[in-house]
Write a protein that binds this DNA or RNA. Structure first.
Length: 452
DNA sequence: TGGGGTTAT
DNA sequence: ATAACCC
């Protein structure tokens, strides 16, 4: 029954709405969430840290910490001074350089992609995987009447009992087994522990993954989804409802999930716009039809540094050079070439919610060509471009006070899709030179094969 | 609040 | 280019 529903409807849009949407083909989604990821990476790098309360520090904040530290009262995003006061034995490591975290983060995503290619990253430490197809295959290969041998892996939300005659229960149960295999693989191959949540959509999978917390997993059966969403004490805890939307909802007298469920749709649409209103009101019922969108390689690379005070052009230039140098290494390893560069600043302001300003421009093609090679200095012309962007935002003849500088490369294009068939393509240095440790793997090879 | 990311407008 | 969201 699922295969027939997957087809694209040929009806008019009007009919698509009137018809019950071709019935909601049931999905099995897993949300995988690593335990205090940065702290885990640090303990792998330096095993002597294991067993001690450990915090990862960025500037004056403890951005994350291990469970030993949490038991002693340290919280995420806690001020270093407060953390040291609460927990004088706290060991701190600097986590401002994200390189190792980023590398291991992508190893986790790649490991999950081996189970099913449909993996969506959320930050460095969370992934969604659509297990629907895998579950179908496993059920088809099951010896006919052997359902009674199936067992759930991990916890069942609410301790709800499983009905082996209910096909949705069976699918989710198989999903829980795959989730356990994923966590086993993460531990055996990468030494990482994490939680998993299995449910029929991303919202519910994410919410249920946090129910049993370090290194455990939970499956949500459909009959308990209302209990799960009503366990949220405030709508701000609903993924997809952020700070701004929560404030606007509160102004309307909406603070609980139940408030949002029962609020007038018409008024909500008028207040928030039809798009946000309809999306978040569906979320309040636990409904989320958003697909698991494969993340693939990153869309952008950026490096930023927050500063106490940057008030001269010379200071800015030297920071920008640092940021750019790191970015160039990353871009070189990636193998793709950025066609756009952006400079972002944050100006000091007493209490206004610190917003950022940015200016971007395309990178001249003669510079793009030079990205892979070491013989030509790409720093100098890029710094010149960035300083022009800088002066277009900051009047350097007037006093200024910046608290953040950031450089972003985006609009990344693969070598083999840009101007293929031109002489440039065959002469592109980074495919033949040794200056760049070509970290490109089979994905690039696939597209190259298609091209030839 | 750090140092990242994404999508929508 | 900004604003919202996520971690």
């Amino acid at each position: 029954m699922e295969g027939a529903e997957a087809g694209v409807s040929v009806g008019s849009p009007v009919h698509d709405r009137a018809v019950p949407a071709g019935s909601p083909s049931s999905r099995v989604i897993v949300h995988v969430d690593l335990d205090c990821f940065y702290a885990q990476v640090e303990m792998i790098s330096n095993p002597e840290l294991k067993g001690k309360p450990l915090g990862v520090q960025q500037k004056y904040l403890v951005v994350t910490c291990n469970y030993e530290a949490r038991e002693l009262g340290v919280k995420k995003l806690m001020n270093v001074r407060d953390a040291k006061e609460k927990c004088p034995q706290l060991v701190l490591v600097n986590g401002e350089d994200l390189t190792r975290y980023r590398e291991i983060s992508y190893k986790v995503t790649e490991l999950l992609e081996e189970f099913s290619p449909v993996v969506e990253r959320l930050g460095f430490d969370e992934n969604f995987v659509d297990l629907s197809e895998m579950v179908e295959k496993r059920l088809q290969q099951l010896p006919s009447d052997d359902l009674s041998a199936l067992t759930v892996s991990g916890h069942v939300y609410n301790n709800q009992s499983i009905n082996l005659h209910d096909v949705l229960h069976i699918k989710l149960l198989v999903g829980s087994q795959i989730a356990a295999e994923m966590r086993e693989a993460m531990y055996n191959q990468l030494g990482l522990t994490g939680c998993a949540g299995v449910a029929s959509n991303k919202l519910l999978a994410k919410l249920v993954s946090g129910i049993f917390k370090p290194n455990q997993q939970t499956v949500l059966l459909p009959e308990s989804s209302q209990d799960l969403i009503h366990s949220l004490k405030h709508i701000k805890e609903m993924p997809g409802i952020g700070y701004k939307t929560a404030k606007r909802l509160e102004a309307l007298g909406i603070s609980s999930v139940h408030d949002l469920q029962t609020f007038s749709s018409k008024i909500l649409e008028k207040e928030l716009g039809i798009s946000i209103a309809q999306r978040i009101q569906k979320l309040s019922f636990g409904e989320d039809n958003s697909p698991v969108t494969p993340s693939g390689p990153p869309q952008s690379f950026s490096e930023e540094d927050s500063l106490k005070k940057c008030s001269s052009e010379v200071e800015a230039k030297s920071k920008i050079q640092e940021l750019l140098a790191s970015l160039l290494k990353r871009v070189c390893q990636d193998g793709r070439k950025p066609h756009t560069i952006r400079l972002i600043i944050r100006r000091y302001s007493s209490e206004k919610h610190c917003s950022r300003e940015s200016r971007q421009c395309s990178i001249p093609s003669h510079i793009i060509q030079k990205f892979g090679i070491g013989s030509y200095d790409v720093m100098t012309p890029m710094v010149d471009i960035l300083m022009k962007l800088f002066r277009s935002m900051v009047n350097v003849k007037m006093p200024f006070h910046l608290t953040l500088l950031s450089v972003c490369f985006c609009n990344l294009k693969s070598l083999n899709t840009t101007k293929k068939g031109t002489i440039d393509y065959y002469l592109t240095p980074s495919l033949s030179t040794t200056s760049c440790s070509g970290k490109r793997s089979f994905k690039m090879k696939d597209t190259q094969m298609e091209d030839f």
